[in-house]
Amino acid sequence: MTTVGDLAQAPPAFSTEGLSCYYGEKPAFLDVDLEVATGEITALIGPSGCGKTSFLNTLNRLTDLIAGCRVEGRIRLFGRDLHGLDVNPVELRRQVGMIFQRPSPFPLSIRRNLELPLREHGVKDRQERESRLEQALREVGLWREVKDRLSAPALDLSGGQQQRLCIARALVLRPEVILFDEPCSALDPLSSGVVEDLIASFRGRYTVVIVTHNLAQARRIADTTAFFWMVDGVGRLIEHAKTEILFQNPRNPLTRSYVDGARG
């Protein structure tokens, strides 16, 4: 794994060039050039329907699974073309984890939820699985809460716990990048705070891309922030900058009015 020490020299985790995504003939977003720095937290902000979530979905090629969805342009992950013929999407998704808006644990026990991805990715050794499971649960602060009831149904957990379980489920695969799609918006304020602190703690250990509608949240946790906006009915990347610059001194007037709360 890339460590914090060599961040300055590290290649960007993601870089996109002229990236566009269409649903049928209708573009979701067009011509996005964006670099996501390794080990940093990058927030994507903007109003609903401006292509943030679609953009996130292109990063682990979840767009492959959406009927009628077409992606154009180039995405590189650590310098390699994501749409190259030699890319195995299954292996890609092990390396790039993803967390959704609504917590989505499988209707299995807590333990099975975490073991399933491990077995699927060929971790055959039971000892190894056990230790990764415990490590991931500790990392999301769930270990103490669930260690005595690992065989209880995951759906019995509270919403916030479920979301942390989903994060742990991504962590057991030891991803390098984690994508978050509004991970706190379906949670109560208290759980939301816990999850947000958790994401902030990933800085330097994982590369994080997070879509959020909560500008204050972006401001609290993101190193850089990218602002998407609808231009003529199509999502565009308007501005990407260090978070404090984007919020206090943006170059684009659209960004200024959005972060000042005048629009959206």
């Binding site: 794994m1 390699r80 890319v87 292996e91």
Partner: peptide, 15 residues
């Protein structure tokens, strides 16, 4: 671990 792990042979179709 680095990005090279991505490029395993085969294309999602397991046995």
């Amino acid at each position: 671990m680095n990005g090279a792990n991505l490029y395993a042979s085969g294309f999602g179709r397991t046995r």
